[in-house]
Design a protein around this nucleic acid. Structure first.
Lengths: 234, 234
DNA sequence: AGCGCACTACGTACGGTGTACGTAACTAGG
DNA sequence: CCTAGTTACGTACACCGTACGTAGTGCGCT
């Protein structure tokens, strides 16, 4: 019957400070920063309530005063990194602006490789996420279309960036805490793949392997994907 | 010093049956089917080694004879559902074929809502995934382009499908084990969002909300996104 | 035929997780 | 000033993945 809510609540609708009782020792920003620091350094799986509390220097259960569920900790993290988006005065060329947005998002994801894993429409409502979305819409002012279409465009660009960065950093996170290196694991997979392809059961796949000898240009692939999407809208 | 490998290994490179010792009580297909059944019914988080072993009717640790790590259990699951892809004789119209592929994948993901969360290039090498990829390449035979481009197209289509289905089923999985319903949680989020937008800090977002009164047509959004991507390539 | 060994089966145990709950200290509003 | 609501946090529970040891089984080889 006391304090703990039985009904779902968005963390952003709770006031950070109520005025009654002792002054909280940490701000939401402190907590988010600690969690982000851990995730950046040791991977998302290292972010546990105990670990974050330890980083802050408080008891584990004290965290639950600030963050009712772990989900909400993730939400704080997402909002914190959303705040890293640099917002500029729209140039008037919406295409160029969207490319710039995409590149920035990609850089952000490379800086915080756990971000794609957390990327979900659920987190799209945090204060900084809203500011980001509003900025995208501002960039799209010169693009004559209903807002519905603009929203689709933003979602599409974000989706493409997420997809590609996920591929780029695929096994980095996965193998972080494993006893073998990413290179070893990759080598094993490639070796197996080579054996399968060599079996002759997948002729086109084999041809594809035989074709491109050169190292794939990740940057180029990303750029092309982006361009194609924008072409699809324009 | 015995049996357990110290070096990473792809589960598919281990023979399912070695011939020595007692006949294994279960096949990989049995195990995968059990795990998929659990994930379909109770969500991916309900898939634990203990739970799957229970479903099969064996001791927990016996599972580790078949599946060295939980990751490999996921790999079995991914391969099992990849096998649900219906493969047809390419029609000669690669665009139509790719649309059909995309729709099938989307249906697959709606049938197994945990699939997008597991979607990763790492699982792209399982037997059934290779068959699927080969089929896509076969559909793209009439598309005159280097295999590198075809691969990019397949990746792009898969990415778009994954992104959109993820959005479609966003909170379904998340709220499955929570004490409140998805509708409740959504209502709370929408209410908060409404309050924020009404604050006037996000004029374009507000305009966007005011604009589309009608219910958004998910099917249509998906269709358009797909068309735009294919347009980008053609 | 029969021996040996690789394999299956599985109980126990360890270190981790999220978090419910109870208690003590504190402080601002009435 | 008093008291109600907050903060702080230790303990405890149920669950997780899985290392390890032991017993039993049946194929392959001699």
């Amino acid at each position: 019957m006391a304090g703990r809510a039985a009904v779902p609540e968005v963390i952003w609708s709770r006031p950070e400070r109520t005025g009654r009782g002792p002054r909280p020792a940490y701000t939401r920003a402190d907590i988010a920063a600690a969690a982000v620091r851990i995730a950046d350094a040791e991977g998302l799986d290292a972010v546990s309530m105990r670990r974050v509390a330890g980083e802050l220097g408080c008891g584990t259960m004290s965290l639950y005063n600030y963050v009712p569920r772990k989900e909400d900790l993730y939400e704080l993290m997402m909002d914190a990194v959303s705040g890293e988006h640099e917002l500029w005065e729209p140039s008037g060329d919406w295409r160029a602006d969207m490319v710039r947005v995409a590149h920035q998002t990609r850089a952000l994801m490379h800086r915080h490789t756990w971000l794609p894993r957390l990327m979900s429409p659920v987190y799209g409502f945090s204060p900084n996420a809203l500011r980001y979305l509003e900025h995208c819409l501002a960039c799209l002012d010169p693009f004559e279309a209903p807002y519905g279409t603009k929203m689709e465009l933003v979602a599409m660009v974000n989706g493409v960036v997420t997809t590609y960065v996920t591929n780029e950093i695929a096994t980095v996170e996965r193998t972080r805490s494993l006893p073998w290196s990413q290179e070893q694991e990759n080598a094993v997979r490639i070796a197996y793949l080579g054996r399968q392809v060599a079996s002759g059961a997948y002729p086109r796949l084999a041809a594809s392997f035989a074709e491109d000898a050169g190292p794939i240009d990740l940057e180029g692939v990303f750029e092309r994907a982006l361009t194609r999407v924008l072409d699809g809208f324009a």
